[in-house]
Simulated assay, not measured.
Amino acid sequence: MAKQYRKPTNEVTVIYGGRSPAGRDTLNPKDVLPNGMTAKQHCEKLIAERGGKGRFIEKNSELEDVCMLHSCSYFGGCYEAAEYSYHYALCTEIEFTATLNSKATTAKELAALQGGERVIITANQDVTWSANDNKKLEKVSINSTTYSFTMPKAGSFTLKATGKCDPKASKSVTVAVKTTTKPTKPTNTFNGFGTEMDKYIHEAATKFNMDEKVLRGFIKMEDGWTGKISPTGATGPGQFTEKTWNHVATDKQFNGSTIGMMPVTAQNRNTPNDPRRNLRINTLATALYAQYHAKILKNKGLEVSGVNLYLMHNVGQSVTDVLQGKTASPALIKAMQQNNMKANETPAQFVKRQGDIYMRHYREANDPKFFK
Rank of each mutant, 00 (worst) to 15 (best):
L288C: 12
F56G: 00
H87D: 07
A169I: 02
V351E: 00
G36N: 10
M359C: 05
A111Y: 13
A204N: 06
G260V: 14
S61V: 00
R280V: 09
H87S: 11
G77I: 02
Q41G: 04
A123N: 05
V12E: 01
M221F: 14
N209Y: 13
M312L: 15
S318P: 07
T180N: 11
G18P: 02
V140Q: 12
F371R: 07
T122K: 14
S318L: 13
V315W: 09
Q354R: 09
L215P: 10
P347W: 06
H202R: 14
I259V: 10
M37L: 05
I15H: 00
K182V: 12
A266M: 11
C72S: 05
N308G: 10
R360Y: 11
T271I: 09
T244L: 06
Q349V: 15
L311A: 01
A365I: 06
E83K: 03
K369R: 15
N188P: 05
I201C: 05
K59P: 06
N366I: 03
T346K: 04
I57K: 02
D133E: 06
D356I: 02
N278A: 13
T241H: 06
A343C: 07
H70C: 11
L33H: 00
P21T: 01
I94S: 02
V177K: 01
G52A: 11
F190N: 06
A22M: 14
V315G: 00
Y292G: 12
Q354K: 11
A112N: 15
K352D: 12
T283I: 10
S305P: 00
A176T: 05
Q114C: 09
L332G: 01
K334E: 11
S318H: 15
N366C: 08
Q337K: 09
S257K: 07
Y84V: 11
T146P: 03
Y200D: 07
T258L: 10
S61I: 03
Q338M: 08
Y310L: 06
M262R: 04
E11F: 01
K164P: 01
L113K: 00
H293S: 06
C165M: 10
S73K: 13
G52P: 00
F75D: 14
H42A: 05
F75R: 14
V66H: 00
S144T: 15
R216A: 03
P152Q: 11
M68K: 09
F240K: 04
T283W: 03
Y362E: 01
L46D: 01
F75P: 09
F208S: 10
G301R: 09
K139A: 14
D133F: 05
V140S: 09
K45Q: 14
P186R: 11
R6W: 08
E242W: 08
K178T: 04
L332R: 02
R55K: 14
D356V: 03
S329R: 08
T26R: 02
K334R: 11
P21D: 05
N60W: 11
G76R: 13
K369M: 12
N60L: 10
A343Q: 15
T206P: 07
N314F: 15
K53F: 12
Y79A: 15
A343G: 07
L100Y: 02
K45S: 14
V140H: 08
L27S: 03
T286E: 06
G236Q: 08
T145K: 12
E212T: 12
I357E: 15
